[in-house]
Design a protein around this nucleic acid. Structure first.
Length: 125
DNA sequence: CTGATGACGGTGC
DNA sequence: GGCACCGCCATCA
């Protein structure tokens, strides 16, 4: 990532837990990170280089849509990447979070990385 | 230090 | 369902 910040670091570690074929909302990531807001997550993603190892493309907004930004081509690339992972978008460019929404990290991971265990995935995958 | 900014989200109309 | 506000707060100039 571009800047060295403890907060951004925690955000990125959580984002890295999102498996292929799943997506998470900015607010969801923020809740897991704790002491952080959706805007922080969005800003952190914006600061990442396009070739970052962090799967930033799996983070979308709470409406199940890819957040529009100045660089339209980047948005399109994100959509293509997610479709390649199996995510399906409807005619409105929305994806069904009930089907593709990430349930959260595993309890063990949360505990080992000092995150609040309340956000653990409720059951299996 | 101060003010502007932003890949968001909840509320109210 | 959609749209306009406004709070959010780490970063940056």
């Amino acid at each position: 990532m571009k800047v060295n910040s403890p907060v951004y670091g925690r955000i990125c570690r959580v984002v890295e837990q999102i498996p292929p074929g799943k997506v998470a909302a900015y607010g969801q990531i923020a809740a897991i990170v704790g002491n952080c807001t959706a805007r922080m997550v969005g800003y952190a993603m914006a600061s990442l280089p396009p070739d970052s190892p962090v799967p930033w493309q799996r983070v979308i907004n709470a409406q199940g849509k890819i957040s529009p930004r100045a660089d339209h081509e980047s948005t399109e690339h994100q959509r293509q990447t997610l479709m390649a992972e199996g995510i399906v978008f409807d005619s409105q460019g929305k994806t069904d979070l009930r089907r593709f929404g990430w349930r959260g990290p595993q309890l063990e991971w949360l505990l080992e990385n000092d995150f609040d265990p309340i956000w653990a995935a409720s059951s299996n995958e």
